[in-house]
Design a protein around this nucleic acid. Structure first.
Lengths: 250, 250
DNA sequence: GTGATGAGGCGTACGGTGTACACCTTGAGA
DNA sequence: TCTCAAGGTGTACACCGTACGCCTCATCAC
């Protein structure tokens, strides 16, 4: 052969892409907290410092990991149904995130959008514009989508996991009923069960689609009614705010 | 005196609250990355390990810091205007976060809600229920609010800061116009300016209120129309989803 | 061949982090 | 005066990212 590999049979030469794909795999399997340069190096059968010949540092590695999974999002299909297209794209993003549970945390910690990320955002904006949305409304809609465009649930503050001991559980339930009557009332109703499932039984996919559709329906309504944030073009300072404040109060 | 402090005149005895209030102050002034146990100890004129007599570990310290700022949110006022009350409370939360820019990152990293945090959530739920919202709709509305109930902008992926050199800037602008035509079109229109302000001039407060009002209006509309997610009580599995899907398609 | 070159893997070491653990100090109460 | 515990001290360790210098080896002009 013209390329004799004598050192080790299992050692193909390692390149940047192999590094971050291995990182994605490691994070998928062992969680983000297990992803460190030493563990990743070991996974690749290499010494830690070898990685730095292929990625500048850990931050860049995390950037590339996000790029890798953003590429997994379904490509945009040709259609005239803007709402369907947007919905499909965002739900696809959500499926990707479900496969990579570490991703939300990493996305939130990025300091700047990569070209791949900008491609995705550009395509979403394109959906609005192609449907005839004003530049103005498109802009606000993108902000209103926020992290939801990536498929986040953005589940801040998961409620504490209840104790398994039934006696302790009953005690906790009694306490909560006094201090958090509304939470308890809502939670027990939400799953037609007793206190044992008080904090469970919430369908994430449903909640996500509920909020997404609420936003999309809102965008549609504003678009159809020809909503504009500015009474007259030319000034772009505080008037924006008072304009909408006026509308809100009706 | 009956309490002679001979060691040092400036050394009042240090207690848990002093520790986390000092931590909040340090994070406010120097940023979250400067908040470590050694720096915090120095700020308090004490050796690092002394802190562990008052807080269990850094995670607990971060929990307490969040508690401290959640307490800064305006208390709930008595009113029959649920939308106004909710709006006021959430905008107040946003003001708090603006005073403590490190808070969103910390909130996102909490693994469980503290009692103080649950108090706040309970009060929001209470607003919905008092207004006559169904338990069902209240539940979904809380999820739809998501991190917005804390006043997050949730500005994922800030666009890269443009170079200051005007020549480089023009080059970047030209490149972007080709690769991200929609972003550029939207951004230039958004502030009626040339490329020099392409990524600036976005009023965060306006964007936040825009999205918040969109959600609140949506909740109101659904409440008034007597929206329910379940065609019949008793089953709580997939039917939920198809129910809303049906509504969405109309 | 042979020496130069440079890409890529290696080994050591350093500074920064959270924190375990044993020690000491001090002041209140018996 | 002795005891005891709360609270501050000092040392030390494990783990992290990564700077820096070295070594190996395939390539290629001569």
């Amino acid at each position: 052969m013209s390329t004799p590999k004598k050192s080790s049979p299992s050692r193909l030469p390692l390149n940047p892409e192999r590094v971050w794909l291995a990182a994605v795999e490691l994070a998928d399997e062992s969680g983000l907290e297990s992803l460190n340069m030493r563990a990743l190096a070991q996974e690749l059968g290499v010494v830690p410092m070898a990685l730095y010949k292929h990625v500048a540092n850990k931050e860049e590695l995390l950037d590339k990991m996000i790029d890798a999974i953003v590429r997994e999002i379904d490509p945009l299909e040709e259609t005239d149904d803007w709402k369907g297209a947007l919905r499909h794209r965002i739900l696809s993003a959500r499926q990707v995130l479900l496969r990579h549970p570490w991703a939300p945390h990493v996305i939130e910690s990025r300091s700047s959008a990569s070209p791949i990320v900008l491609d995705y955002m550009d395509s979403l904006i394109g959906i609005f514009l192609k449907a005839g949305f004003s530049l103005d409304l498109t802009h606000h809609a993108m902000h209103a989508l926020g992290s939801r465009m990536w498929g986040f649930i953005q589940e801040v503050f998961p409620t504490p996991t209840p104790p398994s001991d039934p006696e302790l559980l009953a005690a906790m339930f009694a306490q909560w009923s006094i201090r958090y009557p509304n939470i308890i009332e809502m939670a027990t109703a939400a799953n037609h069960k007793d206190e044992s499932t008080v904090t469970q039984g919430c369908d994430d996919q449903f909640e996500f689609e509920f909020a997404l559709d609420l936003l999309l329906d809102g965008f549609e309504r504003m678009h159809k009614s020809g909503w504009r944030s500015q009474p007259s073009v030319g000034s772009n300072a505080l008037p924006l705010e008072s304009a909408v404040r006026g509308k809100r109060k009706k």
